[in-house]
Amino acid sequence: MFELLNSHYNYFAVMLLLGIGLYMLIESRNLVKKVIGMNIFQTGIFLFFITLAFRTGGNPPIIKEGGGPYVSPLPHVLILTAIVVGVSLTAVALALIIRIYTEYGTLDEDKLKQLYYD
């Protein structure tokens, strides 16, 4: 058990982040916290990709003489894009939340539901 933890700690970290993020996303009544949960969830995924690229003893993927073995550059590129996507999503979400707040004066999901369905 401990060995598994030791050799795969990155995956445990990923799982933990995913779990925390999803929990916040579902359970928190505060809209901002929901968005934070969404971010944590995404961060877990980003981390998962990054650790995929890892190779023991690998070099940065910049080709020079006698370089190899390299860390896989692909996941980094992907995640760079994914991060940008994530940032834009967060921004949009926050913009929406501000609009909701100015209109309804609350960020509480339950209260919002009451107002919303009236």
């Binding site: 921004a91 949009v92 926050l94 913009a95 929406l96 501000i98 609009r99 707040y101 100015t102």
Partner: peptide, 13 residues
């Protein structure tokens, strides 16, 4: 987006 968030209204994106 920063201005948008700071202002708190107008179009989302």
């Amino acid at each position: 987006l920063f201005f948008l968030l700071a202002a708190g209204f107008g179009h989302a994106v």
